[in-house]
Computed example of a mutant assay.
Amino acid sequence: MSRQLLDEIVEHARADAPKECCGMIATRDGEAVSVHRARNAANSALKYVMDPKEQLQIQTAIDDADLDLGAIYHSHTRSDPVPSQTDVNLAKFDNDTPKWPGTLFLIVGVKAAEPDIRLWSIVGNDYEQVELEVTD
């Protein structure tokens, strides 16, 4: 991911703090190419919920551009950027099937002056940190 795209996400997180921000990252061949901000319909500092209509509009724009949904991002404003049980539950259906198979989850921690950014794979009830490569 380019530093510029990552900076856009951090800016979104800081702008929405103390509430969580959220959005989607479009990719081509595994490389992030665009960031799509979404409104946190939960309007909460503890969780994010993308409005389904807005989420569909973003997904359609990603599909129409012949891109893939590479990651869903959100912020943690008061805790480390580690998936909470709420985050895990949002990533799956009740039968533990992933809602977005192959999609990663980027969490931006903004509780400190320096952002803490981590990338995760969430499948069922399990999550694992994935290396985030940032280019200039």
Rank of each mutant, 00 (worst) to 15 (best):
S2A: 00
S2H: 04
R3W: 00
L5H: 12
L5S: 02
E8C: 04
I9G: 02
I9Q: 00
V10R: 01
V10G: 00
V10M: 01
H12S: 11
H12A: 12
H12V: 00
R14L: 10
A17H: 01
K19Y: 08
C22Y: 01
G23S: 00
T27M: 09
T27P: 04
R28F: 05
R28K: 14
D29N: 15
G30T: 04
G30Q: 02
E31R: 14
V33D: 06
H36T: 06
N40R: 04
N40E: 04
A42R: 08
A42H: 05
N43D: 15
A45C: 04
A45E: 12
K47R: 13
K47P: 00
Y48T: 09
Y48W: 10
V49M: 12
V49H: 11
V49D: 14
M50S: 05
K53D: 14
Q57D: 15
I58N: 09
I58L: 12
Q59H: 07
Q59G: 04
T60A: 08
T60F: 02
A61H: 10
D63F: 03
D64R: 14
L67A: 13
L69E: 09
L69T: 10
G70N: 06
G70I: 03
Y73H: 07
Y73Q: 03
H74L: 05
H74G: 08
H74M: 07
S75L: 02
H76D: 07
D80P: 06
P81Y: 03
V82M: 03
V82P: 08
V82H: 04
P83W: 06
S84E: 05
T86K: 10
V88F: 09
V88H: 05
N89M: 09
F93Y: 15
D94F: 04
N95H: 13
D96H: 05
T97G: 00
P98V: 01
W100S: 14
G102Q: 08
T103L: 05
L104T: 09
L104G: 01
F105T: 10
I107W: 08
I107K: 06
A112K: 14
E114K: 11
E114H: 05
P115R: 09
P115N: 07
P115M: 04
D116M: 01
I117S: 02
R118M: 09
R118F: 03
L119W: 07
L119G: 11
S121T: 05
S121E: 14
V123Q: 11
V123H: 05
V123T: 14
G124K: 06
Y127H: 14
E128F: 02
E128M: 06
E128S: 13
Q129W: 00
Q129I: 00
V130M: 11
E131S: 15
E131Q: 15
E133G: 01
V134Y: 02
T135E: 13
